[in-house]
Design a binder for these strands. Structure first.
Length: 558
DNA sequence: TATGCCTGTCATGGC
DNA sequence: GCGCCATGACAGGCA
């Protein structure tokens, strides 16, 4: 087994099983991973560097955007919030007082109350608790200055009012805020917040921490779906456990998530072994430059009908001319139609080309005619004893690489058949050049068949190499992808855990503040409101409503 | 000798 | 229809 150097990862058993399944599919194809290790490692390093650069750029961009944004904002000294300079006066200034002073139903005078829909006369007026002159305001200010809390209240308010018909807050005033609290989810935020300029979406997260209390600034709100954990119903349960029948319409916060194969593995860098000298095989030199194997075929010269067109060459015209070579039309057809048999035929026709030098030497003592006669006697005998591969052709020369051996096998065949082209040319010439080359030489059927076969095998060999290489690259790529996904999953799990903790703390704070504020409210008689009968609702613009719970239920039923 | 890997080859289908 | 390419399957060689 080969030791492969793979990127460091700690896959689970399942992952390993998956890899093994993929790997087993190809392992018998012989693709070796180590071939790709180097490029793989390179790719990995490049990817990491690229990721780091991108992160750096993004941070830089965020800082710039934040600066630009802050330049457009001014700090509200009272609330501590940044507000656009050009924006109309915020409600935050008035909210503070109106929470306790303005007349219900709408506690914020800047927001015209929908009195026809809103508070009937049974809504008690707010009165500031004389005993707690500033603390209430302060508490609300603190509460309202927390964007997260505002957001929670907004959600609750919107849900309630959407359902009750008391008020339909503009989504533009709401949704963009969500994106501010989802700095890590810009892509999602931008989907939901069409009305919000992207620079606000992308930059508020940077300034966000400056607006919140220190402890909260530690919290990150990159919660993909806050409502999944902190939905309106849960919110209701948190504060109105007894009012579960009041269904709220949850707003749509959910987002619409939405080689060149490196040129052929160089064919064995070694050039075809024993590259034939093309010129030595020119038709005119056949008889003179008689290659050694040809001694096995004393009749071959005479058998070559150089003038005969391949198509007109009859069995009698092939090679021997006397037909002793055993080539018949059917044989030729077999060769063409069944390449698998061609090798066998070659083996029969030119048995020596399948043998080692030694074997050839021993065979040379035997007249080739004998072999040909055997072929003639039993033409149906499958070469190499029927399997076509059962006889190892080059088992003697262990030093030779198999590829070389195989290559030389075709070369030897070509040599034996006196093919006047190099195997390399036969395989690699473009089809036009190949045809042109072929047309310049009169080849008999056996030669044509062999040339075609050599070309086909040669091209297929390269194709197989490419195919295996691609397969290995795919496997390596999948392993890398698997590793990345595992890391991402791990990261998301940590993130989720962090968000949950943060959310819990916020809920707790909000609950505390809510009850604190509620307990400070007094009606015109100085009596506290019953939390069972009233609830506080808060909008994005700072308006606070005191909503009678019974009313909500009634409206809902209507 | 058994086993796993590598490579060449063939068959087949798509372009 | 031919040639090329991709790929699954198979077989042989080798360590």
């Amino acid at each position: 087994m080969m030791e492969i150097e793979l990127p460091k990862m700690h896959p689970s058993q399942q992952d390993m099983d998956l890899i093994d399944i993929l790997w087993r599919q190809d392992v018998d194809l012989g693709a070796g991973r180590e071939v790709f290790d180097f490029s793989y490692r390179q790719k990995e390093v490049e990817l990491r560097l690229q990721r780091e650069k991108e992160e750096e750029k993004q941070q830089q961009r965020l800082r710039e955007q934040e600066k630009a944004l802050l330049a457009q904002l001014q700090l509200d000294e009272e609330t501590g919030e940044f507000v656009p300079r050009s924006a109309p006066p915020t409600h935050t200034n008035t909210t503070n007082a109106e929470v306790t002073q303005s007349v219900p139903p709408c506690l914020d005078a800047s927001v015209p109350p929908s009195t026809d829909l809103m508070m009937p006369s049974d809504i008690p007026a707010f009165t500031q608790n004389p005993l707690l002159p500033g603390s209430l305001d302060q508490a609300w200010m603190e509460l309202l200055s927390l964007p997260e809390l505002q957001q929670c209240l907004n959600m609750q308010m919107q849900d309630s009012l959407d359902m009750d018909g008391f008020m339909k807050p503009s989504t533009e005033a709401q949704d963009p805020n969500y994106s501010q609290y989802l700095p890590g989810m810009d892509h999602l935020s931008s989907v939901q917040t069409e009305g919000c300029p992207p620079e606000y979406i992308n930059t508020y997260d940077g300034s966000f921490n400056t607006m919140v209390s220190p402890n909260l600034s530690q919290m990150s709100l990159n919660v993909p779906d806050v409502r999944a954990e902190f939905g309106p119903e849960e919110f209701n349960e948190l504060f109105y456990p007894e009012m579960r029948e009041v269904k709220v319409n949850s707003g749509p916060l959910t987002s619409d998530e939405g080689n060149t194969v490196s040129q052929l593995v160089e064919i064995p860098s070694d050039p075809p072994v024993n590259t034939m000298d093309l010129h030595s095989f020119s038709p005119g030199s056949f008889s003179s430059g008689k290659p050694e194997p040809m001694s096995e075929f004393p009749d071959s010269d005479s058998g070559l009908s150089l003038d005969a067109s391949p198509h007109t060459s009859s069995p009698g015209k092939s090679l021997n001319g006397d037909g002793s070579f055993g080539f018949s039309d059917s044989d030729s057809e077999e060769m063409d139609g069944s390449p698998g048999d061609m090798e066998s035929d070659y083996a029969e026709i030119f048995p020596l080309v399948y043998l080692t030098d030694e074997a050839q030497a021993s065979l040379s003592e035997k007249p080739p005619a004998e072999a040909l006669q055997m072929k003639a006697k039993n033409p149906k005998i499958e070469p190499a004893e029927a399997s076509g591969h059962s006889k190892p052709p080059f088992t003697k020369d262990k030093q030779k690489k198999r590829s070389e051996a195989r290559l030389s096998r075709d070369e030897q065949r070509a040599k034996a058949l006196q093919i006047p082209f190099t195997v390399d040319k036969i395989i690699n010439l473009p089809v036009d050049d190949f045809n042109e080359m072929m047309s310049k030489h009169q080849l008999n059927e056996a030669q044509l068949a062999l040339v075609r076969d050599i070309r086909r095998r040669g091209k297929n060999k390269v194709a197989a190499q490419n195919c295996r290489k691609r397969k290995m690259e795919n496997i390596v790529g999948l392993e890398y992808e698997l590793d990345s996904l595992k890391e991402e999953k791990e990261h998301l799990m940590k993130e989720k855990s962090k968000r949950s903790t943060s959310l819990r703390e916020m809920k707790q704070q909000l609950s505390t503040l809510y009850h604190e504020v509620f307990s400070m409210l007094r009606d015109e008689h100085g009596k506290p409101f019953s939390p069972n009968e009233y609830s506080l609702q808060h909008t994005a613009d700072g308006t606070v409503f005191l909503i009678p719970r019974l009313k909500k239920t009634l409206v809902k039923n209507n």
